[in-house]
Structure formats: structure tokens, C-alpha cells
Write a protein that binds this DNA or RNA. Structure first.
Lengths: 242, 242
DNA sequence: GGCTCATGTAAAAACCTTTCACATGAGCTG
DNA sequence: CAGCTCATGTGAAAGGTTTTTACATGAGCC
């Protein structure tokens, strides 16, 4: 029953040729199915068809592999957020909400990355490149918050964009890690995580004085779309108890 | 150099007498200093002065110890939140904010519990007692949200209390796990986590139509304290850029 | 063809987890 | 108090993982 190994070796020769990448992929799969904690360096090596010592030619240790994955995760995360933000088109609020949804989508679709990024307990100073990548991802949220802050209705104090960004981030992260991980819902929710976050953000924005009554719809025009500054008893951003 | 073990044994005899508790304490310490992932069953045994096999008389395996700790954590968490809520005294909003602060304080002061509770990647169905404990803790937040929802200013739609509770929880958890763990701040913040969360909650509540201009102060009287329904351009809940 | 260095391997040390047969002694029973 | 019993510990061992070290391979380059 050793033809497996033999053929593997035959297929690729003594040198793997692309081990580093293979290990990253293998680890990603393992983390997705067994959690960041359960993932094993030896397992990844086995999966790539090399000896347990081989990975050490590419990563100082298990933690470095993990932080590489986290870094790569932040890069993809940044890309997704950037795409979702789409430079604020068609209007700032719509784009902003899309960023929130993208956050949850990423957490749901890339649990392995998300784990490595936020739940692997990596030493904060693990990797400067990691920090930088995380910083760049956050900067998307901050940039969006800046644009949003600039829209503060005249007459109201303009909220600090950095604070808004941190608030939005904490909401997104909170919803993602409490309600949007694992097998969908370990707690039965009255609404989906997406709806939950959207309502949360809308209420928050309204608290800052932004007009957030259901979708400025068309309005591809200049910001801000003309909206009554105070539209009486506002309709809630949450759905009716259908 | 074996007098250590000998004396240990002498001190306590063949039977430890309180091993289960000793293991829980040891594990708590280890998790606090090395993270939930780094903690080792064998280490806990060593710390309690027993053989590596002894713990298996009290916990099916490492995970069961972890989930015991998480459960205990939720119990203490519930106690803290209950105390902070203090049945809504002196007024609902003040008490509510106190609950938020208690959340962060717990995360900061009991990192080991917090890790075990939220970051240990325990299988969702690990322990029914754990689920129940977590449910009880959440119920405090929900109860508080219910009282708050009942205060919705007349004329505005009353927000679903469950939704509010989930929102508040996600904000608290988000701030706690992103900004209030580890060595205080791996990211430089413009304000403390406590202030960040307080501002976030205040803005959110204002978004729901609650009057939240700085502290109803005295007003131990009946809810709601008389407040102008719409106080013009509201002063921001965030501090001035001192 | 021969060199060299990056990339793999094998073997081994150190540690963890978990199980199993066996040892102890605390507490009940008579 | 003798004797029993069973919960609680111990030692040893099997099977994994991590990481290091000396050695093997072969790809790329004169």
C-alpha cells in the first residue's frame, strides 16, 4: 500500500517545485475544517506529500505559516472591501452598506482566513507585513467613513471619521464572530446576520443625524440626495414582524 | 532534586483532595498567560502536582476542561452583568451603559475566561450546561433591552427588544475582542475602548429615537425623565478633540 | 562534466494526549 | 476496629506533533 507515496514521489520528483504554495493551500483547507487550533503542521506536510521536516524550509515554524495565511487573508479582505466600496458608487450610504455585507460575506465564505486573521491568537507583533496588511484593510473602512462623515447634514456636528470607522468595524466584527460563523447559527436569531448588521448600521447612522430612510434609490446624482432633515416618526430600519 | 515532588506528595498524601478545583485554577492561569490554544493538559497536571493521567479522572479530555472553564466564565459574567444592571437603577439608560462597561471590564480583567468563552473554538454543542449558562448571561442583556425598548419615545415605533439586545451584544463583543484585549491596544485608538463603546451605544440609542443628551443626572423618578424630544443639533456623544 | 545551494529526507529528542492495569486510602458496614 | 469497595492517583506505553541536525538530491550555472 505504499504505491501512493511512490507515485507521489514519481509525479513530482525529489523536489516538490511549489511546496510553499501547496502548504498554504493545504493549511487553508485544514483550518477550514478543523479550526485554526486543530490545524497541524505535520498534517499539511502529509497533505502536500512531503516529510514533516520539509515545511521548515519555507516557514520558521507553525506560527509563521499561520501568520502568512492571516496576511494573505487581509489582502483578500482588503480586495473584497475595496470592490464593495467601489469608491462610494452609486451613493455613499449604499456603498457603505455594501461594505458591511462584504465583511459578513467574507467571514462566512472564508472561515479559514477569518480564523487565521482574528481568532488564531497570533502574537500582536508576529509579522510586520501582517500588521501592514491589516492596516490597509482597515483603511478601506476608514476611507469610507471619511466620505460618509463629510456628508453629515449641515447643522449637526461632524462626527470624527476615525471613530465612525472603529464603530462600524466593531459592529461588523461583533456580528460576524457571534452570529455568522460556524454552522450558520448556534443561536436562533430573529433575523439573518446580514439583516442584523444592516439594521444596526442604519440605526447608528441615523443616530449621527444621517438621513437613512429606505434607500435614496435612483439618485446617482451628486451627494447628498435631497431628503427631509427630520421625517417625523421614522419608519424603523427593521422589518415588520411578518 | 526530587524533594519537590516528594514534599508535594507529603503535603497532600496520595490523594489530592481537591484536584478538580486545582486543575480549573491552574488552567485558568495558564490560559491567561499562554492563550486558550497554548494551554496544555499536562501543564495543568504538573502545576497541581499530579501525574499527567490524573486529570482524566475529572475531565473526559482537554476540551471538557475548557468547556467547564467557559461555563464558569459565563456564570461569573452573568453575575457581573446582573450587578451592573442593578435592575435598571437609578435609571434605565444609566444602568444600560453600566452594563456595557461591565462587559468590557470583564473582557479586560478576565482574559482567560473570555478566551475560553468566545475564542476557544469549542464545538457549539460541547456542553448543554455551557449553552444554558451562555443563554442566561445573554438574557441579562435582553432583559435590559426590553426595559429600554419600553421607554421608546411615544410617537416612534417601538424597536424589537431582541434585536436591540443582539445589536448591543455585537457592539460590546466587537469592541472587546478588537480593542480591549491583550496588551491594551495593538492599534492606537483615538479614545479608550470604554469611551468608544459608550459613544457607539449612545449614538445607536439616539438612532432609535431615545433622548441621550448627556445624563438625565438626578431623575431617580419615574421613567422617562422629561426631555425635549428633539433638541436641535445634538451635541455629539464623543468628546471634543481636546 | 562538475559545483553549489536550495530544497527534501531520515532519524531522533522532547513534549502532549490518552488509555490501561494497578496502587492507595477515605468512608461505609457490621 | 476489621474489612470492603470504589473514587482517585500512578506508571508505563502507544501514537502524535514539533523542531533540529546531518545527509541526500538535483536544478541552474560555469
Amino acid at each position: 500500500m505504499s504505491w501512493r507515496k511512490e507515485s507521489r514521489r514519481a509525479e513530482r520528483g525529489y523536489h516538490h517545485g511549489n511546496l510553499k504554495e501547496a502548504l498554504l493551500q493545504a493549511a487553508l483547507g485544514l483550518i477550514a475544517e478543523k479550526g485554526a487550533a486543530g490545524f497541524t503542521f505535520a498534517d499539511a506536510a502529509r497533505m502536500a506529500g512531503v516529510s514533516p521536516a520539509a515545511p521548515y524550509r519555507h516557514f520558521r515554524d507553525r506560527d509563521e505559516l499561520l501568520s502568512s495565511i492571516a496576511q494573505r487573508g487581509f489582502e483578500q479582505f482588503e480586495a473584497r472591501l475595496t470592490a464593495a466600496w467601489d469608491d462610494g458608487r452609486p451613493d455613499t450610504v449604499t456603498a457603505f452598506e455594501r461594505v458591511g455585507r462584504a465583511y459578513l460575506t467574507f467571514a462566512r465564505e472564508e472561515p479559514a482566513f477569518y480564523s487565521a486573521m482574528f481568532e488564531s491568537g497570533l502574537p500582536a507583533d508576529a509579522n510586520p507585513a501582517l500588521m501592514a496588511a491589516s492596516e490597509r484593510a482597515f483603511s478601506i473602512i476608514r476611507a469610507a467613513a471619511e466620505r460618509l462623515a463629510a456628508l453629515a447634514p449641515p447643522g449637526t456636528p461632524r462626527p470624527p471619521a476615525m471613530m465612525m470607522a472603529l464603530h462600524i468595524w466593531s459592529m461588523s466584527h461583533g456580528v460576524a464572530s457571534l452570529f455568522a460563523r460556524g454552522d450558520a447559527a448556534r443561536r436562533k436569531l430573529p433575523m439573518s446576520p446580514d439583516e442584523l448588521l444592516e439594521a444596526e448600521v442604519l440605526i447608528y447612522l441615523r443616530g449621527l443625524g444621517f438621513p437613512t430612510d429606505r434607500r435614496p434609490s435612483a439618485a446617482k446624482s451628486a451627494e447628498p440626495p435631497p431628503v427631509p432633515p427630520e421625517s417625523g416618526p421614522p419608519a424603523g430600519p427593521w422589518g415588520k414582524p411578518k
